[in-house]
Design a protein around this nucleic acid. Sequence first.
DNA 1: TATGAATGAGGTTTCATTCAT
DNA 2: GATGAATGAAACCTCATTCAT
Lengths: 215, 215, 215, 215
Amino acid sequence: MMFADGEKKGTRQRLLESAAAIFTEKGYANSSVAEICERAGANIASVNYHFRSKDALYRSVLQFTCEQAEQFYPFPSVFEEKPEDRLYRLILALLQRILSSEMAGSFYTLIAKEMAEPTLASAGIISREIARHQALMREVIRDICGHEIDEELLLRLHFSILSQCLFISYNEKGRQHHLQKNPIQFKDAEIFARHITDFSLAGMRSCCSLSGDLS
Amino acid sequence: MMFADGEKKGTRQRLLESAAAIFTEKGYANSSVAEICERAGANIASVNYHFRSKDALYRSVLQFTCEQAEQFYPFPSVFEEKPEDRLYRLILALLQRILSSEMAGSFYTLIAKEMAEPTLASAGIISREIARHQALMREVIRDICGHEIDEELLLRLHFSILSQCLFISYNEKGRQHHLQKNPIQFKDAEIFARHITDFSLAGMRSCCSLSGDLS
Amino acid sequence: MMFADGEKKGTRQRLLESAAAIFTEKGYANSSVAEICERAGANIASVNYHFRSKDALYRSVLQFTCEQAEQFYPFPSVFEEKPEDRLYRLILALLQRILSSEMAGSFYTLIAKEMAEPTLASAGIISREIARHQALMREVIRDICGHEIDEELLLRLHFSILSQCLFISYNEKGRQHHLQKNPIQFKDAEIFARHITDFSLAGMRSCCSLSGDLS
Amino acid sequence: MMFADGEKKGTRQRLLESAAAIFTEKGYANSSVAEICERAGANIASVNYHFRSKDALYRSVLQFTCEQAEQFYPFPSVFEEKPEDRLYRLILALLQRILSSEMAGSFYTLIAKEMAEPTLASAGIISREIARHQALMREVIRDICGHEIDEELLLRLHFSILSQCLFISYNEKGRQHHLQKNPIQFKDAEIFARHITDFSLAGMRSCCSLSGDLS
DNA sequence: TATGAATGAGGTTTCATTCAT
DNA sequence: GATGAATGAAACCTCATTCAT
């Protein structure tokens, strides 16, 4: 059922947004169906009515936040300018997807939580989406390092870049609590993207030439 | 009551080890006292007898795994060889602490989980230990980049290195499930440490000279 | 969902009545949620569904029995006959509230138990209701002893009267067991009210004139 | 086992005193064996070792506090002065037994709690001791009202006096919390005894003459 | 004589889910 | 299409008691 702008959102949609926010904040295990319904102003039975189970709701949330992220902060297309700029744009989009408060929840924060404490429920969509992003990233890395790059090295470079990006999601009460004085905000996205890009560009080039020298 | 080496361990110790393993595997919220006791071959009330609560048990596990890590894989002392080698040793020790299967659980995996989904119970020991490791890392970075390095940049460099190390802990069912074909094993620690070191050394130097150029 | 008179009561109401009876009989600490649910023919989780906790159920029971008492045996209005008769009616109403078996539980028996072993949960409603009854009682005492009566004396007279009334609640297995051959029943209420009134009237007058002589 | 003055008290004695204090403060149900042992500086198994069970410890505490009360504040012998003075002394001794802080616990406070929430464990000693005090009280009442007094009336007069005395024990957190501004202290015992005596003397005389008139 | 360790029964509470309307 | 009531399983915790030394 679709609503025109300004019309009242349906219960299903409100549940989706409420759940997205709460799962993003607390993770799957620490979120209760009751709390999600309460924040959505819906009946406690509505989750099971609309989604069959908490588990299925979670999967719907992954789908929903994934689409939202794609819509708000699309990844740069492959056919663009210099690879260095594409890398920056790719990293920036990732950070924005994590730090933005415009969306109901953050798909990539959920992904980061899934890495730490996987919910078997997630398998499908997360793997698919990561693969999609990975393909873009590998393309960029190849453009920078040369297409003859070793597969193992490619995996590791992707790993190094991705880990820095997802680590950004451990904000507020997690990393910030132990490491950071001030929480990282959306407006810092560009600065951090710049840093990660520069850091990683140098890292990539160095690793490639080392590897090249050896072979 | 004291036991000679090799003799049967006391219940408290078995609980500690069982809990370390289970918390490391599943995280705090997904672990149940019943399961911990069962694996330890202990009565379900024994957690309360020995530790007062699940929460306090968790804190004891943090303490225990922290000490174990320090004992098995100590960080390199400050008074050592070249800074580049010290960086490598620092990173290697971290990866070993995460990947080793010799210990009952992994303190740094618990830290990584705490970053993703913080348990307020953790505050003390984790902050303290992170600060300790951070101090060592900052010292190395300063030795490499020069002691006049900007504080903001120092924070970001530490962030970039640490994120790669902790991300290694998202193994088995997490990252591995979505990213990796094969789980990372203890024997890979040196390879990965080498990679992260090289990648980060280049990143650091590049960021420093960029920063230096600007000033 | 509404029920016509005589129709089956809702679970919430059955829980309230069951809890009122059991708390009145055994006190808070000796009553278990399981027993309350069993007597109400309800699931053990229903207390939490309807009242959130045993504690909150207890507060609801205080409220419920208080209203019931007020409805069944209202205190005499201030604008009545001679003060001596008002005193009698006030005391009688109190005893009836304690001894009646028409109501699910006895608010004033709960109050008496709270005096002996206070539950911090009770504070609000009990203090309020006691203050209400105290105001009525002080008014009567003043009418009998003269309005210039000393505040200290007023407190003590109220104390002497109230203590006799509440002591009546230590019935069945308490006082009766040690002091009384036969339990005091509802039909004895008038006899006892008569006794306490006469005893206290004489006491009040004597204390007042003694006090008057001194001044 | 007896100890000379100044010698270290045995565990059994320390348990008795600790239990007396805690039972007096919280009542049987709200006191835990663990807390009693802790306050006594004894092992948690010591209660069962020395007394067989919590229940048996409680009975020992009743016995112990009863003897202590008798020793510190003996009731006036029957062969004394005027009945009015004897009544005063009887009431005063009761209040002192309740309010004194010299003793490890208060037998009469325990009695008052037993009235509100009887522990079947208590039966024996409490009935016996109450009967003893009742006999003294009845003797006094008879001396004042005349020995031909009606048995029913005698019971009621005893009831009226005793209820006022025991009500004093609902101190600190109970009655005081709802009724009293300041807690009643040991030094107030005489004032209260005076009040209860005067109040009750007048009540008794009035009830007797009323009863006499009727007959 | 005494104790630290351990236990089992039972308590309250949480929670996802199902039922009946 | 939606909901308030109800439920069963399982979680954590408390506690008096017992065991083994």
